[in-house]
């Protein structure tokens, strides 16, 4: 049976996530309204502008429904803006958030666009080969609670974590051809 995975499609790079998931054999639903969440086994919150996505999450109470599903153990994976939206604490901001992960996130933490970069990351959970990671006006986590597992750091900054059913990366695995991060998320759905 194909896994049914949702990709939040309010704004941002949702099409790229969809393409990776389809390559990995999933049945993908683009989520724009609350009813689109029915029947999915996992959800990806893509990169984009976290303030924009946050505003759009208030329409139709879709954000509240995602919070419930996340609290009820549905696997959710947030990339970049998705990491920001999942965090309970956003430094210097009162913007809307899903408030699910015990993490403190700093937005645009590496600087403005001229400082955006790609690099090779060591991610032991994904094997010995380094992962090419693209950081775009990226956040990082300043602090995480003891129940949050750190999967990768870059120059001492936390950029990839898992807390139970929740996964978050500061970089964009959907922009490279290496599918290991998405496969890791699909394995979380299998475990669930």
């Amino acid at each position: 049976m194909k896994k049914r995975v949702g990709v939040l499609a309010l704004q941002g790079a949702f099409r790229e996530h969809r393409q990776v998931l389809e390559k990995l054999g999933c049945d993908v639903t683009e989520v724009r309204r609350t009813s689109d969440l029915d029947g999915i086994q996992g959800l990806i919150i893509p990169g984009g502008e976290s303030t924009t996505i946050g505003k759009l999450l208030r329409i139709d109470e879709i954000g509240e429904r995602i919070k419930e599903l996340g609290a009820k153990d549905m696997p959710i994976f947030g990339t970049c803006a998705g990491m920001i939206l999942l965090s309970k604490t956003i430094v210097d901001s009162d913007q809307y958030r899903l408030n699910l992960m015990d993490t403190v996130v700093e937005r645009n933490a590496f600087g403005r666009q001229v400082a955006s970069f790609e690099t090779d990351l060591q991610v032991p959970a994904l094997g010995v080969n380094p992962l090419r990671a693209v950081f775009i006006r990226a956040p990082y986590l300043k602090e995480v609670a003891p129940n949050v597992g750190i999967l990768a750091e870059y120059n001492g900054k936390i950029v990839f974590v898992r807390q139970g059913n929740l996964l978050a990366s500061a970089f964009h695995p959907e922009l490279t051809s290496d599918n290991r991060v998405h496969q890791y998320f699909l394995n979380m759905i299998d475990e669930h």
Partner: peptide
């Protein structure tokens, strides 16, 4: 990285 920011602006 340059095209990547544009990807994030989509929609």
């Amino acid at each position: 990285v340059k095209t990547g920011l544009a990807e994030m602006l989509k929609g």
